[in-house]
Design a binder for these strands. Structure first.
Lengths: 232, 232
DNA sequence: CGCAGGGTTGATAGCCTTCAAGGTCTGTGG
DNA sequence: CCACAGACCTTGAAGGCTATCAACCCTGCG
């Protein structure tokens, strides 16, 4: 469930490139020598849908979404990604999804060829990459159940809890949601209006409060029951 | 009963028309020495949801479905699998889905530990396994779009075309569908009744005919347009 | 022949979308 | 500091798609 560890510095307004490293050594650190830093401004594209899959990225700060468009404009947001998350690694030749900056983001970019080559000689890295892909597959399976079988309210509750788990401070009442309602709707297979009404309902039920750019979680039990996730 | 004849190399990435050739060497053949044959009767379980992931399987003949249940009984059919397909390889510790025989099936079963160990020393096998996982992820992404953004009719058209592509004889008019309507419904996030009505509608439109245990495809263009898959 | 299970069709209900309008927030410029 | 514009958010009303409930059909089988 927990992918690569979220670096705790997401919130910190660190100056320049000063990023506090996670203490534990990680096979992914092997990539650093081939990485280059990239900054992308809010709402700008990192790579397009159908682009040649020449690079992958790791998020240092900010939030990224992966997006896919059908020809008639229907939109699917695949994932929201946060500091520590890696994307662009699971596409063979071209990127199935576009990647866009939800907030201003700082990234490290790695050439896929280098990554693959390095993995050939470093089993630990190869295992790490495989674990990333398997985790993404696990997430996709969860989402299939969500999209295929859950109601709008259940999807919303699941979404809020997942965002909490993936946030820099899971368990805190305050939960930042940097994406807008349209993004949430396209992530959950709903409309903007239904997302709004659902959140309003959760507010009336006392499960959460709606803040400036996020929510305050008041009743996790209620949300978990609603989301059909009794565990934890 | 033509499900027996699904080409064994469909997961090998070979083009669809080539069936008669002598079997191309496949890294997966390395597993054979550790395999054991298993037969499972129609509607019986191969492994349960939550079972320890000690084995993976390759289908020789028949059709398998992967199934996941929510606590209140809601059901999601993850995949329908056919000869040549491999399953049970993408779960880390326990199987997220159960696997059940749609028809009588003949399988080869491989111990996961052996597979993983062999992959350590055989890069070709490791790449092959990674390709399988990536392909499954690709399929999951397609299904997210289907479940999140397509209408019932579009899902049905997509389903029929996918079954055709994965059949032993893609492009043939006759298409066997060994699974029942409930399975199709739970695969597409619909109800049995909506599946029936959708098929009846496609029949009225002249897109297909409904046979004993399958369909006869009459208007692929119509289906492709409906499924939002203009390519091919 | 009767039964059982799956398939099909009809009627109704409800959830969610669509369409519409107003509200709120934020950044900008006077 | 205030006014304003635009984007985003929220809420209301109506409609449509799909689920639900119900009945019937069809087929295979003991």
């Amino acid at each position: 469930m927990q992918s690569i560890m979220h670096s705790a510095q997401q919130t910190a307004g660190l100056s320049h490139g000063m990023i506090a490293r996670p203490p534990a050594p990680d096979a992914l650190d092997l990539l650093e020598q081939f990485g280059s830093s990239v900054t992308v401004r809010r709402e700008h594209e990192i790579h397009g849908q159908g682009d040649s899959a020449e690079h992958c990225w790791r998020i240092l700060t900010g939030c990224v979404r992966t997006v896919r468009l059908m020809e008639d404009g229907r939109r699917q947001v695949g994932e929201f990604l946060f500091p520590g998350d890696i994307f662009g690694l699971d596409d063979v030749a071209i990127h199935e999804f576009a990647a866009e900056a939800v907030t201003d983001v700082k990234l490290r970019r790695y050439p896929r060829r280098m990554v693959e080559a390095l993995a050939e000689s470093r089993p630990a890295l190869a295992r790490r990459l495989r674990a990333l892909t398997l985790n993404n597959l696990h997430i996709a399976h969860e989402r299939m159940m969500l999209l295929g079988r859950k109601t709008a309210m259940e999807r919303l509750a699941s979404f809020v809890l997942e965002m909490d788990r993936r946030s820099a401070t899971p368990g805190r009442a305050m939960l930042d949601l940097p994406m807008n309602r349209t993004d949430i709707a396209d992530h959950l297979g709903m409309t903007v209006e239904t997302v709004c009404r659902g959140l309003a309902h959760l507010k009336r039920e006392g499960a959460l409060a709606i803040c400036r750019s996020g929510v305050e979680l008041h009743d996790r039990r209620y949300l978990r029951d609603l989301a059909c996730e009794p565990r934890h």
